[in-house]
Amino acid sequence: MTRRAPRPGREELEAARDKLVPDVAAEGLRVLFCGINPGLMSAATGHHFARPGNRFWPVLHASGFTPRLLRPDEERELLTYGLGITNVVERASAQAGELSAEEYREGGRQLARKVARLRPKWLAVVGVTAYRTAFGERAAQIGPQERMIGGARVWVLPNPSGLNAHWTPTAMAEEFSRLRKAALAQEAAEPEQGG
């Protein structure tokens, strides 16, 4: 039985401010999920989407991306499914509202370079406001985008934060599932690139 580390306390969370959480990434992924920025719980634990109440992991499973519900500390298992995680802005904060528009824009530029280097098939940005600000796409909506970033197709997903009351877990899972089906269809349509 795997023992989970105790939850960080208030002082540990505050000490995590501005820390970085390493990407879960590799070259040629099917989908690279991109959060807004790490929250303090993620920075304190070193794992993405670690705050209790964040719906990323349950929605990822409910949409069929993972065969079982993963915990944040199992995030590296995503690589075996051709999935990864990064962020628009790397530094941790208590709330995304603490980030400036310039941080988003600079994060967007850095993300485009990272995507060009890693070459995932899809970049899935979880948070339409973050996508709009980072890439100057004011009219962007949830769903597939016409724009490509770093050679990857782009899909904007709803923010899985428990604070996002506009989206139920079921509706969120349906949108994640739409992306999963599009990624599978793209793979089926592309002949293997041999070497």
Rank of each mutant, 00 (worst) to 15 (best):
R4D: 10
P6G: 04
R7A: 13
P8Q: 06
P8I: 09
G9H: 03
D18E: 13
L20D: 14
L20A: 13
A26T: 09
E27F: 14
V31S: 01
L32T: 04
L32V: 07
I36K: 11
P38Q: 05
T45S: 07
T45R: 07
G46I: 05
H48P: 10
F49L: 13
P52C: 08
N54G: 02
P58S: 03
T66D: 01
R71P: 00
D73P: 00
E77F: 00
L78W: 00
L79N: 02
T80C: 04
Y81W: 12
Y81D: 12
G82Y: 00
L83R: 00
T86V: 05
E90P: 04
R91P: 04
A92K: 00
Q95I: 14
Q95S: 15
G97E: 15
G97S: 15
A101S: 09
E102Q: 15
E103A: 05
E103S: 10
E106I: 14
R109S: 08
Q110T: 11
L111S: 05
L111M: 13
A112T: 13
R117D: 14
P120L: 03
T129R: 11
A130G: 12
R132F: 09
R132M: 08
T133Y: 07
A134V: 04
A139T: 09
A139C: 08
Q141G: 11
Q145N: 06
R147S: 02
I149D: 02
I149K: 02
G150Y: 06
R153D: 04
W155F: 14
V156F: 00
P158C: 04
P158N: 09
P158A: 03
N159R: 06
N159W: 12
G162S: 05
L163T: 12
A165F: 14
T168A: 11
E174I: 09
E175G: 07
S177L: 05
S177A: 15
L179H: 00
L184T: 09
A188D: 13
Q193K: 13
G194H: 08
